[in-house]
């Protein structure tokens, strides 16, 4: 028999597990697939990840965090790395990111094109995000300022 000697209890347990799994994977660790090469080599096209939606419940996003950025909702998210924090001045010169005039060490990058971006000062609730793959024309790569409200969570790994 499928549910053993106590089918009612087993059914209740099964239901509890299903509800628990639904809550966890809907509201806490949101499963996602990476599409595209924008985060290469840290993340590859088709890689499976989880976005931890509780990561920024008590603390704010930090530099180096890989975050999920919601669009109109969370069915599709951009995946980017936070390089600039609120009120900082960010510029890109020769492919290197400068924070308040100092170059940012980025060991996660495999190669870089000589991107140029004039300095921009972030506002109170703004972050500067960028993908790890800098080996394409900068016009083809989506990066820049994002409002805190769009940052949905942090990649679990």
């Amino acid at each position: 028999m499928w549910f053993g000697r106590h089918p009612r209890k087993a059914l209740v347990r099964l239901l509890a597990v299903a509800i628990g799994a639904f809550i966890i994977f809907k509201f806490v660790f949101v499963p996602a697939f990476v599409a595209g090469e924008s985060m290469y080599p840290s993340y590859r096209d088709g890689q499976f990840i989880f976005i931890n939606r509780l990561a920024y419940l008590i603390k704010e996003p930090g530099r180096g965090d890989v975050v999920g950025i919601a669009l109109a909702g969370r069915s599709v998210m951009y995946m980017k790395r936070v390089v600039g924090l609120p009120k900082e001045s960010i510029a890109i010169r020769g492919g290197s990111v400068y924070i308040n005039g100092s170059v940012l060490p980025e060991p996660y990058i495999a190669g870089r094109f000589p991107w140029e971006e004039p300095p921009v000062t972030l506002e109170e609730r703004q972050y500067f995000v960028i993908g790890d793959n800098r080996t394409s024309d900068q016009e083809l790569h989506l990066f820049g300022r994002v409002e805190r409200r769009y940052i949905s969570g942090k990649s679990l790994w």
């Binding site: 595209g36 669009l71 109109a72 069915s75 599709v76």
Partner: peptide, 30 residues
Amino acid sequence: LDITVAVDTKTETAHAELTAKVTHAGQSEV
């Protein structure tokens, strides 16, 4: 995806925000 709609019944207008997801057959790009 993620369509949110707000309707103004007085002016009979609606505002919506959504994500358009576009995929091409045989391509992994989204």
